[in-house]
Design a protein around this nucleic acid. Structure first.
Length: 225
DNA sequence: GCGACAG
DNA sequence: ATCTTGTCGC
């Protein structure tokens, strides 16, 4: 099974049900090959938005695909949030827009970096996992901080890691992508374990944020303007 | 009661 | 999400 039938619910109760199904899904693990196309996707809302927002808020999302240092496809879309931001229910807000941006890419990506958590989630089914299941692509989460997981910061040296755990289970790692800069939280996602996620993110991070995600973020903000 | 809490 | 300052890479 490569893809997993996921919808994008419009209510919290339906989304929770989808997450509960995702949490027990056992898709085939993905392993990186010698060469691969790495995608990144990102979503943002109105610039000055304060608080949780609400249903109907505009959303801008973008995706970028890289083969090595070369960007081989870009796409951006605009959409509408189906609810306010609630920790654990981010998919309600930006899930459909992210999926639209990713499917608008003209090049197939082997693995996708998402600005969201994966197994680090109250129901162990964060947006990175749901997006991967929805579009049928292995995913990795990269965020500024964990949602529910905890872990000591890593040494101040590029490549240093420290585990992020929830109830003793490793769901991701803090990863120092640049010496002297705050680490990023790297999350196991759809078909990608935490160790593989770190390997992919470090290899694609010339700056603090991995390049495909950095470019998607830039594009989404340009689209918003 | 308050803040914190992926974006 | 977004605010900030300084710094670095392009």
């Amino acid at each position: 099974m490569t893809s997993w039938p996921t919808q994008w619910p419009s209510t919290a109760a339906e989304l929770v049900a989808v997450q509960q199904d995702l949490a027990v899904a056992r898709p085939e693990p993905w392993h990186p090959g010698r060469h691969h196309v790495i995608g990144g996707c990102y979503a943002c809302g109105p610039h000055g938005l304060v608080g949780r927002g609400q249903a109907g808020d505009p959303v801008w999302a973008a995706a970028a695909a890289y083969s090595g240092e070369q960007c081989v496809s870009r796409a951006s879309v605009s959409g509408v949030a189906r609810g306010p931001y609630t920790p654990g229910l981010l998919a309600l807000r930006v899930g459909p827009s992210l999926a639209a941006a990713v499917t608008a890419l003209t090049v197939a990506v082997d693995v996708l970096i998402v600005d969201a958590t994966g197994r680090d989630h109250p129901r162990r089914a964060g947006l990175a996992m749901q997006l991967g299941a929805s579009v049928g692509v292995p995913t990795i989460g990269v965020t500024h901080r964990p949602l529910t997981a905890v872990g000591a910061p890593p040494a101040d040296q590029r490549g240093a890691t420290s585990p992020l755990t929830v109830n003793g289970a490793v769901v991701g790692y803090w990863l120092r992508t640049r010496t002297g800069t705050r680490p990023v939280a790297v999350h196991a996602g759809w078909r990608v374990d935490a160790e593989t996620a770190v390997q992919i993110v470090l290899g694609s991070a010339r700056w603090r944020t991995p390049t495909p995600l950095r470019e998607a973020r830039r594009l989404a903000r340009v689209r918003r303007r």
